[in-house]
């Protein structure tokens, strides 16, 4: 394998465990471009990569923890966020980034996701949303729009999807953005902002899954999905999260939706510790 030149300033090679390549992702999968943006964002953010930890759950996106050359953890299915919470609180110097998929973060891990947002723990979550469980063969995901075909909804999805920006907004996240993998520059810049944002930051990445979800929904080539994203995307920074629902053929609203200042869990913990140290007035 040819190693990219090490003096290349933009090279992300230094952040990849190249002995573990080639990766498992299918041709035209969206996780690779999203990972590329994340690694470039680390450089751009100026954060010390040696003080950063990547935590992933299970699934195709969960493989990211195995490929990045940072201290990383591949955890139990759905529990990446509680794991990162423990890691972050026990070692406050480490920046925690959770990189995982919609099934892992929102279905089995949904409870942890909303509680982490409610606590506003200082952490960045990058959620690859490809609407299905790609690794296990394309079962319906919690973000799959109504009526789409998956291997467990062969007659059309009979459930409604989570609108993630709205869910995260209601739960209290400080920073919420969504891009597709055709918006590479925006995605990269957004991840930089998310990494630097104090509190809970959430970046949703709409991503093709040509091998299973695409094949069952008339987008068998990843390029079909990308063209579809170009056609359907509407950039609307500051959009009301109530208007960001994704339907089977409707518009995909992308942009930065929420960027607010709220006390973080770490700040509140410090405050309460200081209060507890004061002698009782009774």
């Amino acid at each position: 394998m040819n190693n990219p030149p090490e003096n290349d300033q933009l090279s992300i090679a230094k952040y990849l465990r190249q002995d573990r390549l080639p990766h498992i992702w299918c041709a035209a999968c969206g996780i690779g471009p999203a990972l590329n943006c994340f690694l470039r964002a680390i450089d751009k953010s100026g954060l010390n990569p040696d003080k950063m930890s990547v935590v992933s759950g299970i699934g195709c996106s969960g493989r990211v923890a195995g490929y990045v050359k940072l201290d990383s953890f591949h955890t139990t299915h759905g529990r990446a966020i509680p794991f990162a919470t423990g890691l972050r609180l026990a070692n406050p110097e480490l920046k925690a980034v959770v990189f995982s998929g919609d099934g892992d973060l929102v279905a089995i891990g949904g409870n942890h996701l909303i509680h982490a947002a409610r606590r506003n723990i200082d952490m960045t979550v990058i959620c690859i949303n490809n609407f299905n469980y790609g690794m296990t063969g394309g079962q319906v995901g919690p973000t799959a729009p109504y009526d789409v075909r998956t291997s467990t909804t062969p007659y059309g999805n009979f459930e409604s999807a989570f609108n993630l920006p709205l869910l995260l907004f209601a739960s209290g996240a400080s920073y919420i953005a969504r891009w597709t993998v055709v918006h590479l520059h925006q995605l990269e810049n957004t991840i930089v902002e998310a990494l630097l944002k104090p509190g809970f930051s959430f970046v949703e990445v709409i991503s093709p899954c040509p091998a299973v979800y695409g094949r069952m929904n008339k987008e068998p080539d990843g390029l079909d999905s990308l063209k579809n994203y170009v056609k359907r995307s509407i950039i609307k920074n500051g959009a009301d999260p109530r208007e960001t629902e994704i339907t089977q053929n409707g518009p995909i609203v992308v942009g930065k939706f929420v960027d607010i200042i709220r006390p973080t869990l770490q700040e509140n913990l410090a405050k309460v510790a200081a209060k507890a140290k004061k002698p009782s007035t009774k």
């Binding site: 759905g78 279905a107 089995i108 949904g110 296990t136 063969g137 079962q139 319906v140 919690p142 291997s151 467990t152 909804t153 062969p154 007659y155």
Partner: peptide, 24 residues
């Protein structure tokens, strides 16, 4: 996975029967 997919395809179309993919 073949079992959950079999039930999604075959149990769900039987009268009075229910298939649901749970969140966990």
């Amino acid at each position: 996975n073949e079992l959950i997919e079999y039930m999604a395809t075959h149990l769900s179309r039987r009268k009075g029967c229910v298939f649901v993919q749970a969140e966990s």
